[in-house]
Nucleic acid binder design. Structure first.
Lengths: 129, 129
DNA sequence: CGTTTACTACGAAAACCTTCGTTGACAAAC
DNA sequence: GTTTGTCAACGAAGGTTTTCGTAGTAAACG
């Protein structure tokens, strides 16, 4: 290991990662097309951001063709865990219970979703860990 | 209402809010003393940050005495909800279940804590919303 | 009083993030 | 082969965050 030192993605970077996680390897143009409606930024903005992310090690790219292909270098799960862990420390004093409470009350969950979370608890308790 | 437009606290600001939430109204010196070990920043840094937070509306202060007394102008619950809601959208596509999963696996929880969360679920289900 | 101490205010510097205009290279179309 | 369009690279500007040095001011003390 050695990847613990990967920087925390910024808001703009996270938007790009979202696209790459969902669609797999993409060109800048594809990412830009996906993001344009929601962010309204131009092509060069997205390009620049992705180049910076490459330098930071958040993305990888294949530049053997004229049109470069980018992909995420960090996994979704790992990044989500990093972000939530950080929030846990910074805003919740490490109390997972409080975080869960805030999460569930910030957005009304469907009963189905609550049931799923309950199932999750069962698994966690069983497998201890 | 009208407070929905309060800015999202930055990392440094959050550290200050943590202290004020825990200890109630404080002088800059008190906040600084609390933060110094963990952040290593000087007195004027903390002061400046708190002054900026005052401008942003994140803090209130009583300056009737020479030594000003600051307190949080945003509630802990509300801020936590704001932050977690944002993270939910930006990194979890709105899936509370995934966020809870990440939270619980990012830090091993004690069985006691798991039980508490379970109780929380019960309450949420009972009281709906 | 005059000196020391404690505190706030101000300004500026450094780092980072976001944005975009411009340029040059390459390829496809005519 | 020239024109037209697409793409990556570069650099710069504007904004925000974080940091601190310096200076001014009120209080405390002798």
């Amino acid at each position: 290991m050695a990847k613990s030192t990967l920087p925390k993605p910024t808001e703009g970077e996270l938007a790009i990662l979202r696209v790459l996680w969902a669609r797999g390897p993409c060109t800048v143009r594809e990412v830009q097309a996906e993001l344009e409606p929601e962010r309204g930024t131009g092509y060069t903005t997205t390009l620049k951001l992705m180049q910076i992310m490459l330098e930071k090690g958040l993305l990888r790219r294949d530049d053997s063709q004229r049109t470069h292909i980018y992909q995420a270098a960090v996994s979704r799960d790992r990044t989500q865990q990093q972000l939530v862990g950080q929030l846990l420390d910074q805003a919740f004093g490490g109390s997972a219970r409080q975080l869960v409470l805030a999460a569930l009350s910030s957005k009304p969950s469907t009963p189905a979703e609550l049931a799923e979370i309950r199932k999750l608890l069962d698994e966690l308790e069983r497998g201890s860990r």
